[in-house]
Amino acid sequence: MPLWHVYHPPGTYTAQEKQQFADGITGIYTRFGLPKFYVVTLFHEIDATSFYIGGEPRQAAVRIVVAHIARHLDDATARRRTSETLARVVAPHTTERGLYCEFHVDETPRDLWMTDGIAPPPPGSEAEKLWVQENRPVPY
């Protein structure tokens, strides 16, 4: 599961812009065979009096925290490519709009994750392909 927390000033995104942003994020992962329902995007409005960078309040800034759980990257080249891909998907919603943006990715151990009380199937398995097809967790 990729879990995205997007922290932003109030009014930065309309409902339609949030949908477009979430669709772009989801597309990153479904291209690699993950079920759509694995991808969770949460938008958090943070008032400027509660958003500080370098000890100074910031109004035109977005901070994104991503947790990767379904897949982990051990290779430095793959990690760099992933960061660059994420930056390209984020840019139209942040830097290209004049917003300062920073993101980072944490990798959470896969064995500490369940969906509806079911441990996720092994990557690339027939069970995972069924989860993709059904777009929901299915006992296996």
Rank of each mutant, 00 (worst) to 15 (best):
P109I: 00
P120V: 08
E45M: 06
L34I: 06
D23E: 11
A15T: 12
A76V: 13
F37L: 08
E96V: 04
A119F: 11
L42N: 15
Y100D: 11
G27V: 09
V90F: 15
T115K: 10
I118M: 14
N135F: 09
T77H: 12
V62G: 01
E102Y: 10
L3T: 12
I64F: 02
V65A: 13
Y100E: 15
R71W: 05
D47H: 15
W113A: 03
T95W: 11
N135A: 07
L99S: 01
F32L: 11
T77Q: 14
V40F: 05
V39E: 00
E45Y: 06
T30G: 01
Q59E: 12
S125F: 02
T94Y: 05
R58F: 00
T26V: 12
G117L: 01
W131V: 03
P92V: 03
K18H: 03
L99I: 07
F32A: 11
A127T: 02
G124Y: 01
T82L: 13
W131M: 04
L73I: 12
P109D: 05
E17L: 05
T26R: 14
S83T: 10
I28A: 01
D23H: 10
W131S: 03
G98R: 10
T77W: 05
Y38E: 01
I46T: 15
P57Y: 04
T49R: 13
F51Y: 10
A119R: 12
P122C: 09
R81M: 12
F21K: 05
G117F: 02
V90Q: 07
R79A: 10
G54Y: 01
S83N: 15
G33N: 02
L112M: 14
Y140N: 04
P120Q: 10
G24S: 07
D75Y: 08
V132P: 06
H68N: 13
V65N: 12
E126K: 15
Q16H: 10
S50Y: 06
H8P: 00
R31F: 02
T14C: 04
V40N: 15
A78L: 14
G24I: 06
A48M: 09
H68G: 14
F43A: 00
P122I: 09
Q59C: 03
Q16S: 13
